[in-house]
């Protein structure tokens, strides 16, 4: 079988959950892409970091809760999960408020080099 070399693909999730479908679209896209054996990573920045908060009881507004959805990522072998430090700081969110414990907190200059390493960026 012809193996095409795998690509480095970064999904950038920059929007809050529920208000628009973008956050859910990003998650669906990354989970679906996991079937293709590429090198996937996921970056939360700007309002996207709000997706990571614990205790989201979104049943009350008839949405699937990101607090329960996001812990599925490791089961799909999505292990490179980055969170933008300045975005957390600006929103006064601390690391122990995050629903995922295996994330890497990175600053703006680290994001700069993360972007530069990718073959493909997908923006949500």
């Amino acid at each position: 079988m012809n193996q095409t070399p795998s690509k480095k693909i970064l999904f950038i999730s920059r929007h809050a959950p529920y208000g628009t479908s973008l956050a859910k679209d990003a998650l669906d896209a990354v989970l679906s892409s996991s079937a293709y054996d590429q090198q996937l990573s996921l970056l939360f920045m700007d309002d996207g970091v709000f997706q990571l908060l614990k205790n989201q009881a979104s049943g009350e507004i008839a949405h699937k809760s990101f607090s329960s959805l996001l812990p599925v990522l490791p089961l799909y072998e999505i292990n490179s999960i980055y969170v933008h430090y300045e975005s957390l700081k600006k929103r006064q969110i601390t690391i122990n408020e995050l629903v995922l414990d295996s994330v890497q907190i990175i600053d703006s200059s680290a994001i700069c080099s993360l972007l530069a390493q990718q073959d493909q960026l997908l923006s949500f």
Binding site: L31, S34, A35, K64, S65, S68, L69, P71, V72, L75, Y76, E77
Partner: peptide, 15 residues
Amino acid sequence: QTFQISPSMRALVKR
């Protein structure tokens, strides 16, 4: 019930 998504093969094996 937990993740509100049906497991793929990979995820089912891992879980």
